[in-house]
């Protein structure tokens, strides 16, 4: 039974050509193009400054997911954004965060898990940023999964 259902869900997006008439309102699309880009940029800035100022991976990730939500609103649940396997993004983020902690066990002087050192080259880059990158990805992945899956409504 899974096979069958599975194929139907898999085929539906492919059958419909992703043409112009698939989109939501054109106003939303036009606005979303700029607004989403801008939000994504802001989210990156907030993410980067997070290690010693307000900000960080979580808030940056939420903002980036907000950008993703705009794109979803504009282009609908069949757009390329909705087809990314967002949960994989989360898992990769988790791996990045964990790996940072483990690598630091070997690199840092104290040898503690998730110890912190600062790299000064090529830019000012504390290792917390790598951990935060993982958090950023986890948050984007989780939120986008929620948006995409709850937005589908194919059951009806």
């Amino acid at each position: 039974m899974t096979e069958r259902d599975h194929n139907t869900t898999a085929d539906t997006p492919a059958d419909i050509p992703s043409s112009h008439d698939e989109k939501g309102s054109p106003v939303l699309c036009t606005v979303a193009k700029f607004a989403a880009t801008l939000t994504l940029l802001v989210s990156l800035i907030i993410f980067y400054q997070g290690h010693n100022l307000p900000g960080g991976g979580f808030i940056g990730g939420v903002l980036a997911a907000a950008a993703g939500a705009m794109v979803l609103l504009g282009w609908g649940a069949n757009s390329w954004v909705a087809r990314i396997a967002w949960w994989r993004v989360s898992v990769v983020g988790l791996l990045i965060s964990l790996t940072t902690g483990v690598v630091l066990m070997f690199v840092s002087p104290s040898g503690d898990f998730m110890d912190h050192i600062t790299l000064h080259w090529p830019i000012h880059l504390p290792t917390a940023t790598f951990f935060d990158l993982g958090v950023y990805l986890i948050v984007i992945g989780t939120l986008m999964t929620v948006f995409v899956e709850l937005g589908k409504e194919e059951g009806r």
Partner: peptide, 23 residues
Amino acid sequence: MAPQLIILPILIPAFAAALLALL
């Protein structure tokens, strides 16, 4: 044993969960 190693029982299943999800 080195004190840092006591988090191994946390790290191993964490990595395992992530890798198994990717697989």
